[in-house]
Nucleic acid binder design. Sequence first.
DNA 1: CGGCATCCACATGGATACTG
DNA 2: CAGTATCCATGTGGATGCCG
Lengths: 123, 123
Amino acid sequence: MTEQTRLPVWCGGEEWCPVTSTATLIGRKWHPVIVERLLDDGPMGFSELKEAVDGISSKVLSDVVEDLEQKELLDRAIISEKPFRVQYSLTDRGADLRPVIEAMDRWGRDHLQSASDEEESIV
Amino acid sequence: MTEQTRLPVWCGGEEWCPVTSTATLIGRKWHPVIVERLLDDGPMGFSELKEAVDGISSKVLSDVVEDLEQKELLDRAIISEKPFRVQYSLTDRGADLRPVIEAMDRWGRDHLQSASDEEESIV
DNA sequence: CGGCATCCACATGGATACTG
DNA sequence: CAGTATCCATGTGGATGCCG
């Protein structure tokens, strides 16, 4: 279970497909946002992260960070034992996702912004 | 079921989150590759697309293109009735995903390439 | 604080077979 | 060609509650 990093996926017959391979790593509902929060606000603890992402349950957040850790996109460090504290930070691999996250952010703002404005009442 | 376009997702309490919103649209295993293939090779039919993505089953491809169509990222046109033919092409929204796809492609090549080389025997 | 346990609903992906 | 039908396994997300 420790070698989750390598999930080569092939497409088009013979060719290995970087896009699908990448998609299988971060192509989930919450994965990208968590990376984004860590990119923008730096390392943080569990609850802090949960706040930053708000809307995610602790169970799901727990699942996701564990998954991201296995994929070596983020590190989990135990900062303190007595008042038990951990800190999540991005690995270099994880930080390198910045262009992907930024492109998603840009696209979202360009194409979904107005829709969200219109339905702001949903909040 | 026709208003799938608008799926505003909020994060961080009050703020609307473009990244998560985008992730809910294309954050799946096959969605990004399909967009990539259409970006690279232009409009194509069902089987052509299935070939290009190879590894996907017709059922899943069928599900995904229907989903992408609902999300207005892709158009489905019936080209011919007698020999029944359709053609899938990207909408402008869909084509605008190029930066996202390219960033994913880049990241995949930079971070997963060697792993795939090493385990090429898996193919 | 930083989770895990449990239970559940639904989404996603895949195999196989079949059709107009 | 372009799917649909069926069945099934697993994944993903969410609610609630509890714990050291």
